[in-house]
Design a protein around this nucleic acid. Structure first.
Length: 281
DNA sequence: ATAAGGCCCTGACCGC
DNA sequence: TGCGGTCAGGGCCTTA
């Protein structure tokens, strides 16, 4: 599952490979991958463009083109971008192919077909609903407190809300709540200011550390295994305290990690370290 | 405005 | 061995 640290790793590794490269041909094999414009228009109008700048917003990759437009890519669950020699036969789940002027091709692979691409001269229209970057100046404890105030939805669901903070997904939401010692089912509005400050600090530290380690790689199958553009794994899975550790001992207290479903997402936590009713503890 | 649930997709996994 | 059913999960959409 690519979340902010994984997407950041992608952008950093692809930037030197794609900088200055011109697109010479585009083939879209699964049209629904292209959110906008129509896939035929996407194919035709991306040809001739040169990659000139690289950025990220939340879980969106931003590939700036020399003419001022942007190729925006969201990997969702199982998307991957690979740079391969142009002669490489596309595998079963390659949905978009972009040939470059240096004999390489960019393959967009996505088993579940949830990933999306946009070609736009207005990135803000794609990113309009996103909240602040968690590693940016606008994401402060006071901001978070304001957004959580009086909310009845669980703090887990609110952390996953990209309009509150951009880039946190299922893995990092669980890990942040564990580190902040907050039960994932707690209503957002019930958190004390101190708990919000702890949660804020946990999110920031966690994401920074995960970027350092180039993301989290999980499992070995094609559905869940994020890997870096060259295929190498990230390293942050070694520092997961709760995610996908159901039944294994909490590394702080020894109690088995439990699993809940919140907002239709698997949620992992330690019931001792993250009590549901902290006031009574 | 907020909350909850369905939908898109496929392959892994489970039970028989 | 093979088959069918269930499940995961980000973002968007609909419903209440």
């Amino acid at each position: 599952m690519p979340e902010l640290p994984e997407v950041e790793t992608y952008v950093r590794e692809l930037a030197p490979v794609l900088l200055g490269r011109r697109v010479t041909a585009v083939r879209v094999k699964w049209p629904r991958t292209i959110a906008a414009p129509a896939s035929e228009v996407f194919e035709q109008s991306l040809v001739g463009s040169t990659f000139s700048e690289f950025g990220r917003r939340g879980k969106y990759m931003l590939f700036g083109l020399q003419d001022g437009r942007f190729l925006v890519v969201h990997l969702r669950m199982t998307g991957k971008l690979e740079v391969v020699p142009q002669a490489t036969a596309p595998g079963k789940h390659i949905h978009v192919i972009m040939d470059l002027d240096n004999g390489a091709s960019v393959h967009f692979q996505d088993t579940r077909k949830f990933g999306r691409m946009w070609l736009t001269d207005n990135v803000d229209s794609v990113l309009a609903k996103l909240g602040p970057e968690p590693l940016g100046e606008a994401f402060t404890p006071d901001y978070l407190a304001e957004r959580l105030a009086s909310r009845k939805a669980s703090i887990k669901a609110l952390l996953l809300d990209q309009g509150i903070v951009a880039g946190v997904g299922n893995i990092y939401a669980d890990e942040a709540l564990y580190r902040a010692r907050i039960h994932p089912s707690r209503p957002g509005g019930s958190l004390s200011h101190q708990e919000i400050a702890q949660l804020h600090a946990a999110v920031v530290a966690l994401l920074a550390r995960a970027i350092e380690l180039q993301g989290s790689s999980l499992g070995t199958n094609s559905l869940q295994n994020y890997s870096r553009p060259g295929g190498q794994p990230g390293g942050f899975q070694e520092e997961h305290w709760v995610f996908r550790r159901t039944g294994k001992p909490c590394m702080n207290c020894g109690h088995p990690i439990e699993r809940l479903v919140i907002a239709q997402r698997s949620t992992h936590f330690c019931p001792v370290c993250q009590p549901a009713n902290p006031d009574q503890a």
